[in-house]
Design a binder for these strands. Structure first.
Lengths: 200, 200
DNA sequence: CCGTTTAGAATACGAGTGTATCCCAAAAGC
DNA sequence: GCTTTTGGGATACACTCGTATTCTAAACGG
């Protein structure tokens, strides 16, 4: 009897429009009406799928987490440990328009997470997964004797995440320093893994 | 003839109220009226000192930069290089309410700087100064043979800033991981400077 | 002490906000 | 093909926003 559509897909479409808008104009420009316009719908249509603005933002945050995870899963895990890790980090750095958009969204939600525990919990969970993944990778390299033997995989993983996030934020407002900051990434990777291992 | 007040001081007072509010409630709660209320004044009074909201935010950003610089200048520069650097980094990490407030403000403006070049320029300038300061410190330690001799002071400085910023952001939305993240800071410092130098 | 200048409060205005409600058209089951 | 359910557009409402304007009271120079 009813007119039926794919609700999940509609939500994803609207969420995608929100992320586009957020990356382009910033969080303060996000409203039910502007998101609806970006999605090519009326404000009422958006309301059918998200009963409040908060729910809309929460969904957009989850969507960003999914996208980040997907991007990390696409990274080629073959080759020297340092190169693999560099690829992981570069997968999240704002080095082109797509990654920049994601980084803007991530940073905007990070700030929101500083004051709203429910948003912070989502980000913390994403970190926890990435940290586990990196530590696993480092543990394997450790067991194979391909990196320095005195490393703590989790501590190195946390340090890498920090470097990645720090470079990401700085690239956002200072894209001119891209070359310099990629050098810094290389320095950090070399230092953290121990210079000249992996070739042994 | 006129009724006269210390305009610069009034601006600083209002700016301080803005930073308090921003740290406590987030950027989206900052308006001319809420800032005025936080400062114990009327909205009209705020308008006398800041002709637009944008000017108000710009001033608050400058004020945050000054505060960060002051905090860094108060760091004790004596002792082993690694300890000094740890103190510098910890001076900016959100490890108590004051530093947390500053970190929230900084992060909020960083996101704004991603989309508004004029805000980004202020942040880039602060980074430039900190980077120069750190590189100078590292250069001196290098000349004195107290750290690994193959280090590039500027690359290490950039890596340190990245680690610091990354840890800062993550601590904002995930304060429970404080102990783990301070371990990661130690790991990063040790790795970047070369384990076991400085004691030589 | 008076006239002038400014601080600062109050008010007004148009625009945009989130949300609630109403209405119509489209789709599916009988 | 009619009825019923729903998608989705339109509208309404109360509120906040940034900014412009207007007003009063206080402080200084003559």
């Amino acid at each position: 009897m009813p007119k039926v559509v794919d609700r999940a897909q509609q939500r994803r479409d609207i969420g995608a429009a929100l992320l586009r808008l957020l990356a382009r104009e910033g969080l303060e420009e996000v409203s039910v009406r502007t998101v609806a316009a970006e999605a090519g719908r009326s404000a009422g249509a958006v309301q059918k799928y998200f009963s409040s603005k908060d729910e809309l933002l929460r969904f957009a945050l989850d969507l960003t987490g999914e996208r980040a995870t997907e991007r990390l899963l696409r990274v080629d895990p073959a080759g020297p440990t340092k190169d693999v890790l560099r690829r992981y980090v570069e997968a999240t750095l704002p080095l082109d328009e797509d990654r920049r958009a994601e980084a803007v969204v991530w940073a905007a939600f990070a700030v929101r997470g500083a004051l709203r525990a429910d948003f912070g919990a989502v980000l913390a969970e994403v970190d926890r997964e990435v940290r586990g993944h990196l530590a696993e990778l480092l543990g394997a390299a450790l067991a194979a004797g391909r990196i320095r033997q005195d490393l703590d995989p989790f501590a190195v993983a946390d340090a890498l995440i920090a470097v990645s996030d720090g470079l990401s934020v700085r690239l956002l407002y200072n894209p001119d320093d891209q070359a310099v900051l990629l050098t810094a990434l290389d320095t950090a990777l070399t230092a953290l893994l121990g210079a000249g291992t992996d070739e042994l």
